[in-house]
Design a binder for these strands. Sequence first.
DNA 1: AACGGTCAGCAAGTTCTGAT
DNA 2: ATCAGAACTTGCTGACCGTT
Length: 493
Amino acid sequence: MYFLSKSKVMSGLQCPRRLWLEVKRPGWMHFSDRAEQSFEFGHEVGAVARQLFPEGVLIGFEGELSSALAETGHLLNRAGDMTLFEATFQHGRVLVRADVLSRRGEGFHLVEVKASTSLKPHYMNDVAIQAWVIEGAGLPLKTIQLWHVDNAFVYPGGGDYRGLFARHDLTEEVLELMKQVPAWAAGCQKALSGGEPAIEVGKQCRDPHDCPFLDYCEPVEAEYPVSILPHGGALAGRLRMEGYKDLRDVPQDRLGTERHLRVWRVTRRGLAELDEGAAKDLATLAYPRYYMDFETVQFAVPVWPGTRPYEQLPFQWSCHIEDQNGRLEHREFLDTEGQAPMRRFAETLIEALGDKGPILVYSNYERTVLNQLRKRFPDLEDRLVAIITRLFDLHPLAKDYYYHPAMMGSWSLKDVLPTIAPELDYTGLGEVRDGGGAQDAYRDIISPRTDELRRLALIADLRAYCYRDTLALVEIAHYFEGRRHIGGYPHGR
DNA sequence: AACGGTCAGCAAGTTCTGAT
DNA sequence: ATCAGAACTTGCTGACCGTT
């Protein structure tokens, strides 16, 4: 028999094989290539939830669950009403820690806090496990609530976070669902009692969470698996059923769309394709040309008045300006003061971009951010709209006219750039290497806990990263126009 | 997590084709 | 002229993609 945390029981509900691997083969996790989001908002959100219970007591966790269990019992032995954070219980060899547990008279009230913005179906199981353990430990629950972030909340400032949470009363449903928890726990124990369960790869491997063992249960069995076909999930499934593993073995007539055919052809020949259409489209663009990139930050708990949870707030832009002689000039903006950067971001951008000349970007992300700035600053509406009309997106151009076998069915900048400008890799960059890293760096820079030396290093890294990103756009555009050649990669027509 | 987009796959509607 | 069935449009939806 095993002691199981709530998260282990949740794993077992998703897939017995996953649970077995987590318990019996720790350290075997083969994290999937498609990187999981690194944002960790639970901490911020939990801290604010606790602020709403000024009398609450936090049960510490110093690596020893037994001490958390003991402290919980100790506090509950006291008389009177109380609120506990991270109260810890076990029952039936299942162990849980409750976000917020209050005693009012004889009854207990449970609150589970989530950083997401909606009530998700699997939360019901999560809360049911907690409720079952807590009631099993002898605490009758009067109400069971789930709180999640309300992304319509506008922060008024001054630390006033009333209204950050949307609250759902789940008492009835959870008390009903609770009856199934013993069966879930028994299922987990059974899965762990034998050898590795033989579970086929399926929908449960991605839903509701990516399984960390996906690469183990479904090893890559081909150099160019059929799954690289873009938007081809269903087709890839059918092809695999018929025994096709590698895209190069699939007969041509099984592929319908132009894009699939190009991926198939390029992969089989091992040679990149670049259609003349790319150069033709770019030839219509006048000078000066602006190559532009934004960095933004999101907070689950808003820190600047007038902002909402998870809004994408721009703090940095980079722009390479190219004149008709091919000369490049770099302009940039980076706010590191810690106050809301959006207004100065918009003003400096408007100033730098002038009033004519195409603005080249990769993806429609910059358009989205500019549209949000329009709403925030109506007085800049006209200037921002003027910028939006000048945007030229290289991403659809790449999708229509370019493919290289190393891209593996993806036209993201990360996958395209190494096939065109391999010299623009991570060397020369500090610890900021992608948008997520830029966000982490910015959070550290504005944090009062970061010392000055590290701040300066992070600022330099952010500048280097954003500079490189717009330079990458220049190189890609030049390659599409036939103005640059590539060494080391097989390219052809 | 949010946003803004594309695309495959399906269903229903419409036009075309060829036999009677 | 009529009609069945093929072939083509149109519209919708949910999965997928890419950015921070």
